[in-house]
Structures are given as C-alpha cells and as structure tokens.
C-alpha cells in the first residue's frame, strides 16, 4: 500500500498550460519591446497590475472552492475605500482608519456569508444583489464625487519600498498566508469540503454555516486589503472603484484551474493566471494596442484554458475511465488521478 504522496501531473495541467502560454508571451514581448524585459517593468507589472488583482483572486479562490461565487468584491472594495477616506479625512489615525476599513470590508463579506448560509438562494444572486447595495451605498454617501487627498504617510503604502514595493509585499503575504490556510489548516479542508460535499461535513458535526460566513468574510476582508493599495496609489476613493474587478478575479481563478463546481482549488493556478493577465495588460499597453483588445484577449484565453483542459479530460476518461468501475464520480475531473497511471 502506498502512503507517500505522488506528483499527479493532471492536477496541475491547467496551471502548467497557463505557465506555458505565459512563457511564450514573455518571449514574444521581449522580442518586440526592449523595455519589457527590464527589472523596472516587471516591478511595474507586479506592483501596479498584479498585486491588488492577486489579493482579490485569492479571496475568490476560497469562495469558488466552496461552490460559491462573490460578485460583490468590487463593490466592497469601493465602499470600504470610501469608509477609509472618510475616516482619514476626519483626522483618524492611519492605523485605526485602516483597521476600520478592513473591519467594515470583512463585515460586508460576512453579510454575504450569512445570507448564503441561511437561505437556499444561489450565491450568484445574493452577491449580485449585495454588490448593487454596496455600490449604491457608496454612491449615496459620496454623492457620486470622488474623495481626493489622503495623508502623505498613507500614500507611502503604494509608493513605499521595503526591499520590495509595499503592494507586492502585501500580495506576497496574502498569498503565503492563503497557502498555509489552504493546505495546513482545518479551515482550509472544511472550505474545500463545503464545495465537494457540504452535507457530509454537516453530518460530521462541523458548523457549516459558520464556515461559509468565514469564507465570504475573508473574501470581503481581502477586498478591503486591495482597497488600501488602490486608494493609496490613486490618492482617491470613489464609488466606481473596483468595478469589473470581480470579473477579472473570477476569470483568473477559473483559468488557473479551480473548479467552478467547488471542491478543488489551486492557488498556484490562480497566481499564474493573475500574472498572465497582468503581463497581457502591460504588454499590450507597451505595444500601444487598444484597450478594447485586452478584454477580447483575456476572454479568448479564459475559453482556451477551460476548453483545452476539458478536451484533455475527455480523452483521459476514454482511455482510462474504466480503471475505476462503479466509482461514483460526481464531477468531471475527480477521476483525473486514477486514470493518470495508465495514460501519463
């Protein structure tokens, strides 16, 4: 009997596919533009494109792995940014204002979680509704006008540098903590189990409702972290901040290989996908390609990643699917590792 973990290639197929696309892109971009392959430009990619997106996508990875979705992170980002700006303008100490913004973001996430846990309504509908509510509140309290001017010390959050730019450090800390949370704690296990078999978890005496609330609260909290970076960079808080960012986060999570049906997630894939999206944005800007093409290319990549993975799984199933007769496989990819032995 084996009890040493083997490396299962299939589990990482989609992430590795993206990594391949990323490498090709990097090679092409460095041929076309001399400025691309410079330390300065890579820092720009990480700091201005990737950091906040990765932070949002990490939260989204947890939410999606519970078979849920959170369409409200963009709105939470806007509203908690406004709370932050109000607090700072009212003369509150920076650490307190930051804590208040993070707390309110987590609270907004927890509201989503409470609704998801207590009603049999699809999280898509719940967070679609709450997204409108939070965005609406943001517009109401600001009257639609942006709030300019944050204290200089706060702006250091975006400009500052401790060996690495602070936004990059923040994203790295978030990713590191998420990896530990996901792989080494009960909380991580229960989050995945919510997605693959919520009923089993409930029967085993785990408080499923609390678990859901905590996942959505974490997603909200991370939207709060992202708002710190964005408001410090733009020196502004506005009601339209973060709009559309939830879609980018969802795209990154799914491209990375996390299953929309829940139960299986990969933070590695999410990170690669975020990097890929950031490189695309940066590269297209450098080549002075119109911004509309970005949308188009990101969409095509998302479709490519999921279609290629699905085609490969179908092929694997045909060649090795009979390896497990009678196996109850509720979702299309759970037979991966089993059929792996025969084909790879």
């Amino acid at each position: 009997m084996r009890n040493k973990r083997k490396f299962h290639f299939s589990e990482y197929f989609q992430s590795l596919l993206l990594l391949g696309v990323l490498l090709v892109l990097v090679v092409l971009l460095s041929i076309y533009s001399d400025a691309f392959m410079t330390g300065k430009n890579w820092m720009n990619i990480l700091k201005n494109h990737m950091a906040h997106q990765l932070i949002l996508a990490v939260g989204m990875t947890f939410v999606i792995s519970t078979a849920g979705i959170d369409l409200s992170v963009g709105s939470i980002l806007a509203l908690s940014g406004i709370i932050l700006a109000f607090a700072l303008n009212a003369g509150m100490a920076i650490p307190l204002a930051v804590a208040l913004a993070l707390f309110s973001a987590a609270a907004m996430g927890a509201v989503n979680g409470l609704l998801v846990a207590n009603f049999r309504i699809n999280p898509l509908i719940i967070t679609l509704g709450s997204a409108s509510v939070f965005r609406g509140l943001a517009i109401i309290v600001t009257g639609g006008t942006p709030i300019y001017g944050m204290p200089q010390e706060f702006l250091q959050l975006a400009k500052g540098d401790y060996w690495l730019p602070i936004p990059v450090l923040m994203a790295a800390v978030v990713l590191g903590a998420a990896l530990v949370l996901s792989h080494c704690t009960k909380w991580g296990r229960y989050t995945l189990a919510l997605g693959s078999n919520c009923e089993a978890l409930r029967r085993l005496g785990v408080n499923v409702a609390w678990q859901k609330v905590s996942v959505y609260a974490l997603s909200g909290f991370l939207a709060g972290v992202a708002t710190l970076i964005i408001s410090a960079r733009l020196n502004t808080a506005e009601a339209t901040a973060g709009s559309g960012m939830e879609m980018n986060a969802i795209a990154a999570v799914i491209m990375g290989g996390t299953l929309l049906s829940g139960g299986k997630s990969t933070l590695f894939g999410t990170t690669v996908a975020c990097l890929l999206l950031s490189v695309i944005k940066n590269g297209l800007t450098m080549l002075s390609v119109d911004a509309q093409y970005q949308e188009f290319i990101i969409g095509m990549l998302l479709l490519l990643a999921v279609v290629v993975t699905d085609l490969r799984q179908k092929r694997l199933k045909r060649s090795g699917g009979d390896a497990a007769p009678g196996a109850a496989i509720p979702k299309s990819c759970s037979c991966d590792a089993g059929s792996d032995k025969k084909t790879v």
């Binding site: 009997m1 497990a324 007769p325 196996a327 759970s334 991966d336 059929s339």
Partner: peptide, 21 residues
C-alpha cells in the same frame, strides 16, 4: 485500512477514483 483488511493500493489518491467497494 490495513487492520480492516481492505484492499486499497494507494491511499494518497483521491477517493473519487476508487471502486464502489
């Protein structure tokens, strides 16, 4: 698994890949 004398060759595989038994 050994005590119960159940034939599972590789316990590190996801259980979704196992047979019904």
């Amino acid at each position: 698994i050994r005590d119960l004398n159940i034939g599972i060759p590789d316990i590190t595989l996801p259980v979704g890949s196992f047979s019904g038994g």
